[in-house]
């Protein structure tokens, strides 16, 4: 099969794959991204609590408000 037919045919076959199979990262990838995100230097500069239950427990115990920062690690 010549390259001129193979490449468009391969592209066509890839486009016919179910979207989920192509785009869904594995759980291992997601876990690795999560670890990498939470290890970022910026989160070491202040005492962030990443566990929602523990954060609320600590806020109640110390009679404090919580400042919440929502981020994600699954993209990029």
């Amino acid at each position: 099969m010549s390259i001129r037919i193979f490449v468009p045919l391969a592209a066509l076959l890839v486009s016919l794959l179910p979207a989920q199979n192509r785009q869904q990262p594995s759980q291992e990838d997601l876990k690795a991204k999560r670890t990498e995100k939470l290890a970022k230097e910026v989160f070491k500069k202040a005492p962030w609590v990443a566990d929602y239950d523990k954060a609320r427990e600590q806020a109640k115990k110390e009679n404090k408000l919580m400042f919440a920062y929502f981020t994600r690690s699954y993209a990029g």
């Binding site: 876990k31 995100k37 609590v49 929602y52 239950d53 408000l65 920062y69 981020t71 690690s73």
Partner: peptide, 27 residues
Amino acid sequence: MLFLHNTSRVEDEPYPTLLQDKGFRGF
């Protein structure tokens, strides 16, 4: 105090929809 919530889409993640539960739509 400081609370950090990270949405990871890892299956064992507790409170995976906390962002939406609190009325937010983006990061």
